[in-house]
Design a protein around this nucleic acid. Structure first.
Length: 414
RNA sequence: GUGGGCGUAGCUCAGCUGGUAGAGCACUCGGUUGUGGUCCGAGAUGUCGCGGGUUCGAGCCCCGUCGCUCACCCCA
């Protein structure tokens, strides 16, 4: 039996894994600077959390969940998204009874049982933030700006920020009424008619050219916003403009999860294939209450680490690891090997990144591995060096050699 | 769930109208008993995805199957 990685799971192995690490760190950094704190929540949850939180009618819940039964016959599901779990944990722990807003970030694997494709995996990685318990439109601005800042730090350019407002309940209700009426008058295929019945809003999201044409004059929610919703949307847009952030209004932007209200946004990259959304999110007033908590609003985003990595590659962005090996030791003989491992341990104690040639290899072979390790310096340690305490340290880039006392190696490398 | 493309060495791939399996890179050792990268030499590695069929003979043709991949749907 030859085992292989489960279908649709993308693994990151060295040396490419260094790029993944870089991307993830860059996505997290702006959130840390803005006082968001880490939240590490359950990877699997009670299935009902997602069916009621994310919404029965969504594709995610209706056909993409990894659901299983445990030994006590509980129905559990591998998390397909991050917000519901975070909300559950906040309510459960009472974090929302302290100072507001609660600002948290998370990073980890999520699971959806879809047919794999470029940039779409069954196990994928997201970095997300949530700001819970604050109605200030400036929080919406902050959340969007965190993502934009992260993209900027990475050097991403060829993408756009799309925004829309889904309004509050009264806005949605009157728009829904108009939309249903509109949809009744045009020709729809079976699947779309079905979707229209469950959640007409999502019909607008159709990307097929003929549907886009048919929906050209469909009522858009922006025309049905209540005064209040309109003002709040305007405040968000003004906030973005004040920060010098470019965005494109997309009145048909409807996100795939049911809990969104008011501000919604999506980051779309231009050089990816069909899966061009590198992140997205929005406001979710009402979600917490629906999950059994108090009535607090919230807003957050999820950014796909896998897709941002692909986007960086598509733009030709160099993602080299920030730190590399500074010293490589080549021991000659058994005594030297024992000496070397001890020396390594001391150096690492002082924060030096170092490695050595293990095994009994010829000098040439050991030098070669030193070369490939990418270390900045190399030191050969044999009987002579151990007795004299003096060694030659070689700079690998140009072969220049200097003399150094072994006891002063750490200082030399710092 | 539906459709297209592709499965040959660790990796990237070649392999003619069917004739008995190859290159480059990487790896190990040596040329140089204590100094890498270049060069030269040597070595190791394959159930040609799997199963069946046609044939004297199949990596190549046919059928099935599994996997990967891209796209639809949808999303990170």
């Amino acid at each position: 039996m030859k085992f292989q990685v489960p279908k649709g799971v993308k693994e990151y192995l060295p040396p490419e894994s260094a790029k993944f690490e870089m991307v993830r760190e860059n996505l997290i950094a702006p959130a840390r600077l803005a006082n968001y704190q880490l939240m590490e929540t359950a990877v699997f949850e009670d299935t009902a959390l997602f069916t009621s939180g994310v919404g029965e009618s969504t594709d995610v819940v209706s056909k993409e969940m990894y659901t299983f039964t445990d030994r006590a016959d509980r129905s559990l599901t591998l998390r397909p998204e991050g917000t519901a779990g975070v909300m559950r944990a906040v309510i459960e722990s009472g974090l929302d009874r302290g100072q507001l807003p609660v600002k948290v970030w998370y990073s980890g694997a999520f699971f959806r049982a879809e047919r794999p494709q470029a940039g779409r995996y069954r196990q994928f990685y997201q970095v997300g933030v949530e700001a819970i318990g604050g109605d200030d439109p400036l929080i919406d601005v902050e959340v969007i700006s965190l993502a934009v800042q992260a993209f900027k730090n990475l050097g991403l350019k060829d993408y756009e920020v799309q925004i829309n407002s889904l309004g509050d309940k009264p806005s949605r209700d009157s728009h829904r009424e108009a939309l249903v009426k509109f949809l009744k008058e045009i020709d729809l295929d079976e699947a779309t008619r079905e979707r229209a019945k469950i959640n007409p809003l999502r019909v607008l999201d159709d990307k097929r050219p003929e549907m886009i044409a048919a929906l050209k004059n469909a009522p858009v929610i922006l025309d049905y916003l209540t005064q209040d919703a309109k003002e709040r949307y305007l405040a968000v847009k003004n906030g973005l403009t004040n920060l010098g952030m470019k965005y494109i209004e997309n009145p048909k932007l409807v996100r795939g999860l049911d809990y969104y209200t008011h501000t919604t946004f999506e980051f779309v990259h231009h050089k990816l294939g069909a899966q061009s959304g590198i992140g997205g999110g929005g406001r979710y007033d009402g979600l917490m209450e629906k999950l059994g908590g108090q009535s607090l609003s919230g807003i957050g985003f999820g950014i796909g680490v896998d897709r941002v990595l692909l986007a960086c590659e598509a733009e030709g962005i160099e993602l080299s690891p920030a730190t590399h090996l500074s010293l490589y030791l080549v021991p000659l003989g058994e005594t030297a090997r024992t000496f070397a491992i001890e020396l390594l341990s001391n150096l690492r104690d002082q924060g030096i990144r170092c490695d050595m040639a293990y095994g009994e290899r010829g000098l040439k072979g050991a030098m070669k591995s030193g070369d490939k390790s990418g270390a900045k310096y190399l030191v050969v340690v044999g009987e002579d060096e151990i007795t004299s305490g003096q060694a030659e340290i070689k700079q690998m880039s140009d072969g220049v050699v200097a003399s150094v006392r072994l006891t002063e190696l750490a200082d030399f490398l710092k």
